[in-house]
Structures are given as structure tokens and as C-alpha cells.
Amino acid sequence: MFVFRIDSNSGVPPYLQLVQQVRQGVLLGFLAEGDRLPLIREVSETVAINPNTVAKAYRQLEQEGLVTGRPGQGTFVNATEAAPVSPATYTSLQRGLETWLGRARAAGLDEQAINALFTAALNKARNENIA
């Protein structure tokens, strides 16, 4: 059974954390087609999270087409047609990021500075996407 975690201090809204974890799970192959996600009640009880939040996350996942809710049975992972990111691409992206991190460290940036830089870049990208 898939297990969720919540980091209260991450600043990421809890429902988004759940969504991201499922996305990541599908991406990394922890979740395969037909797998059942834990029931809302189970998630609430094990992670100590508002059931409405879990429901919201599941709704979003359904809208994204990642999962399908079957009344009375649960929520199941859909087949991902041609995974948007192949394991190879994923590995190569991670390598690239690791190289970048190495360069940042070498340039004298500490973890906080790296985080700030990364968040700023992410925000910028996001704003440009919206605009």
C-alpha cells in the first residue's frame, strides 16, 4: 500500500504534497496501473490529515487523469500512456541537477543560498508561464 508523508514545515500546501507524491510515485514506478490508493479514511488516520484535504488531492489527481475513482471500491492508478518522463530521462535530469549542485557548491553557495536561487528561478518560470 502506498504511504503518504506530510511535512508541516515545507511551506507546500498539504494537498499539493499528496498530489506530488502520487505523481512522483507514478513517475518512479512505485505506483503502477491498477494499484489502489489508500482510502481517504486510511490516509487521514495514518498521516493525521484532514479528510477534505485528501479528497481534494484525489480530485485533482483524477482531473489530471492520473487516477480514477470507482465508487465503493477506491481510487485506482490509471495507465500512463507513454510516461512523460522515461526513467532514462529522469536519471539524466537528476545527473544534470547534481552537476549543477556541484558547481554551485564550488562557487561557494551554501544550501540556503542554493535553495533561494532555485526557488527564485522556479517562481520566475511559474510567473512567466502564467503571464
Binding site: 508541516s8 481517504i40 484532514n50
Partner: peptide
């Protein structure tokens, strides 16, 4: 919190609780 949230998921009751601690709120309240 686990017990409380489990009960909320099971019974669907309305919950009102007070707190002066903020960080834990986001996961439990809407």
C-alpha cells in the same frame, strides 16, 4: 491528530478546535 482525523473521515462531523500553534494547522483544518 491521527485519532481525530480518522474519526472525522469516518463520521463526517464538523470540527471546531482552538489552537495557538500555527504550523500544524494546515494539514488538519480547511
Amino acid at each position: 491528530l491521527q485519532a481525530l482525523m480518522g474519526a472525522v473521515a469516518e463520521d463526517g462531523m464538523t470540527v471546531l478546535f482552538s489552537s495557538h500553534v500555527v504550523p500544524e494547522l494546515e494539514r488538519v483544518c480547511d
